[in-house]
Each structure stands twice: as C-alpha cells, then as structure tokens.
C-alpha cells in the first residue's frame, strides 16, 4: 500500500465557474445541440399551429458545461417575471422570441424543475382557467362590498 503522501493533492485556484465536480475544466459535451434543434422544431410548431412545447431540462443527459452553453446560445431577452406560489418561480425570456426559461424553485430557493417553454406566454403566467371562471364572481362580490361601503358613507 502506498502511503498517504503518494496521493497527489493539488490546489485548484481557478474560479469556481471554470471548474466541475471532477476538477477538470468545464467544457462542452455536445449535448446542447440536439436541444437547440428540438427548440427549432418546437418554434416551427408554435408558429404554424400554435402548439406549445415544454422541455424538462432536468431530464437531459447534460455534462458539465452543457446547460451553460445551451443558455448562452439562447441568450437573454427583455422579459423577466416572477410568480409567488408555493415558493418563487422565475421566468426569463431568452434571446429567441417565444422561448422561455422557467425555473421552478421551492420556498428554500432549491430548484424543483427547470423547463424551456416554447409559447407566446408561459402557462404559469397566464391566469389559470378555474381562476378565470371564478373571476367575475369574485369581482362582483368586491363590487357589492364596494357599493354597500359607499352607501354607508353617503
């Protein structure tokens, strides 16, 4: 058995972003490219038929650097939004119109899911159908409350 001194220990002083778990330089593994083509097909479907697509990025066999590469190719767009329901959800428009990055976080800011959504507006930003059904009733209730309040003051 070689002694402990034989284990080569080196100090890695590179910034954290340049490193991966294996200690090697972050590099691309080419696994972002198929996703980009999938996005292209999804955009085509959105434009021609209006069909929306969601891609679960957690289910992709990305190597270190692949996700960063994918996001850097997509770039950053103009819209940023945040939804506060069951913890924050951050929505970021990418530099490609119609492609959204939706980051579902827990209340402890841990990622629950990371989706690319190809849609005019991400689903979680739109009012939910059941909420819309209840909307008029809710507003009516508030209007009548308003009316009774104003009749009291007049």
């Amino acid at each position: 058995m070689p002694s402990l001194n034989h284990i080569p220990v080196t100090l890695d002083t590179r910034p954290l972003g340049d490193r991966t778990a294996a200690g090697c330089l972050a590099r691309r593994h080419g696994n972002a490219t198929p996703i980009l083509y999938e996005l292209r097909h999804a955009l085509d479907r959105l434009i021609t038929t209006g069909e929306t697509t969601k891609i679960d990025l957690a289910a992709m066999p990305f190597g270190p650097g692949d996700l960063d590469h994918l996001l850097s190719v997509l770039g950053t767009g103009e819209v940023q939004a945040s939804v506060d329901a069951l913890g924050p959800t951050r929505i970021q428009e990418t530099g490609i119109a119609g492609v959204w990055l939706v980051d579902y976080l827990s209340s402890e800011a841990q990622r629950l899911a990371l989706h690319l959504e190809i849609a005019t507006v991400p689903e979680i930003l739109r009012p939910q159908p059941h909420d819309l059904d209840d909307a008029i009733a809710t507003l009516d209730a508030r209007l009548s409350a308003e009316a009774s309040a104003s009749s009291l003051t007049s």
Partner: peptide, 22 residues
C-alpha cells in the same frame, strides 16, 4: 396552495416521475 402553485407542483411532480411536461 393556489392554482398556479398547484400547476407548479404538477410540473415538479412530472419531473420527479421522469414523465414529459406534456
């Protein structure tokens, strides 16, 4: 939990079950 929260819960659940977001 609001309906948006529920949608998010379902998205996380799909991811957990390794099922597609569709």
């Amino acid at each position: 939990v609001s309906r948006r929260g529920f949608l998010k819960f379902c998205a996380a659940t799909a991811s957990m079950m390794a099922l597609p977001p569709t």
